[in-house]
Simulated scan of single mutants.
Amino acid sequence: MSLSVFVTPRSFGKHSSAPLDLLKERGLDVRTNPYGRILTKEEMIASVGDADAIIVGVDPLDRDVLERAPRLRIIAKYGVGTDNIDLAYAASRGIAVTTTIGANTEAVADYTFALMLAAARKVVPIDRGCRGGDWRKLTTVDVYGRTLGLIGLGNIGKAVVRRAAGFAMNVVAFDAVRDEAYAAANGVTYVDAVDEVLATSDFVSLHVPLTERTRHMIGARELALMKPTAVLVNTARGGLIDEDALYEALRSEAIWGAGVDVFEQEPPENTALFELTNLVIGSHCAASTVQAIDNMGIMAARHVIDHLCGVSKS
């Protein structure tokens, strides 16, 4: 019986056949997402019964799903966030879990800056106005020379720092684990609390995983600490921001704007968010570039091959 790989991300192998070719060259039977969207829990349960490996995006892999996959040996995450996977249960079963760290770092950092610029300069409402014949000039806020606050200074946070250098931004950061050598070499100032980042920054960008500790880490209290001309950006994980509190802060113009690529539910449940002109919304697409997709696909495929078949060819 051939080994079976179930692939859920819709973009896997979309621009290049290389990821699929790698799996098939090793004799693996590859099944892909038949729905053209994120799978529901019930659809996952119905799909994983014969899987020896799963290459997964944000589809649910909780205990109920994993219990229906008795042959499963590896979960290869197509990305880096693992909050959709029951890691404890996977470990208890001896199921390996890998991520594609680094594959989409530059793409996500680019999109972080795109959201910052779009929110600060009101790119979306200006574009919409012009298309409707309204050529009035809207007053906006600068990015150049302002203070950027990062909550989380891992690989993507550091990639954002590289881009901020071109805008002569002053960078402050909070992270539970400090890289003092990096900070000293790159002009980053660590602060002791998230509140200090929020109160002193013109732009705040989130780069932390979603855990019970970080869920709704940005709520009404935290938003009230921010400057009225500040912009909040989230390209990390949905659930870090209390979306109802964000709506109120943006509606009342307590902060200047926000750029959000990730939501607790996608599309978001609070459809009133769509009516805000000071919110730029993404469809969880920060990592969706041709290059990042190819990188993630190849890396995930190699993780599967390494685990099921032995070391893959570089």
Rank of each mutant, 00 (worst) to 15 (best):
D261S: 11
R121E: 10
L198P: 01
K137M: 07
A119M: 02
V108I: 13
R163N: 03
L148I: 07
V208K: 13
A292D: 02
G149Y: 11
S314L: 14
S2W: 08
A254M: 15
V191K: 00
D52N: 10
T189N: 06
I156E: 02
I293S: 11
T112Y: 12
C130N: 15
L223T: 05
H207L: 02
Y89A: 09
H284L: 08
G310A: 01
D179T: 03
G297R: 04
F263Y: 05
N33P: 00
V108M: 10
V177G: 03
L138R: 15
G49E: 13
K313R: 15
D127P: 09
V233A: 02
L273F: 02
L28I: 06
T289H: 11
E269R: 14
M217C: 01
L23F: 04
E266G: 14
R131N: 08
S4E: 15
P19T: 13
V171P: 07
N84C: 05
S2Y: 15
L22R: 07
A107R: 10
G36C: 03
L115H: 09
G187F: 00
A76K: 13
T271L: 11
G27R: 09
A292L: 02
A286S: 12
V233E: 10
A183P: 06
A199M: 11
T99R: 06
L153T: 05
V172I: 15
M44V: 03
F274L: 10
D62S: 06
A287M: 13
A51E: 02
L250R: 07
L276E: 01
P267N: 05
Y190S: 13
L22K: 10
T139D: 14
R215M: 03
V311F: 14
P228F: 01
N234Y: 02
E243Q: 15
L225Q: 07
Y190D: 06
A173K: 03
L66Y: 10
C285W: 14
P34H: 05
K14W: 12
I54M: 04
D52T: 10
E25R: 11
D110L: 09
E253D: 12
D306W: 05
D294F: 06
V30C: 08
R37V: 00
V262E: 15
G219N: 04
F174Y: 13
R178F: 01
G297I: 06
D294Y: 04
V204Y: 01
E253F: 13
T200E: 15
K137I: 02
R71G: 09
C285H: 14
G57R: 09
I298V: 15
G94M: 00
A76H: 04
T112Q: 08
R237T: 06
T214S: 11
G310M: 06
A159Y: 10
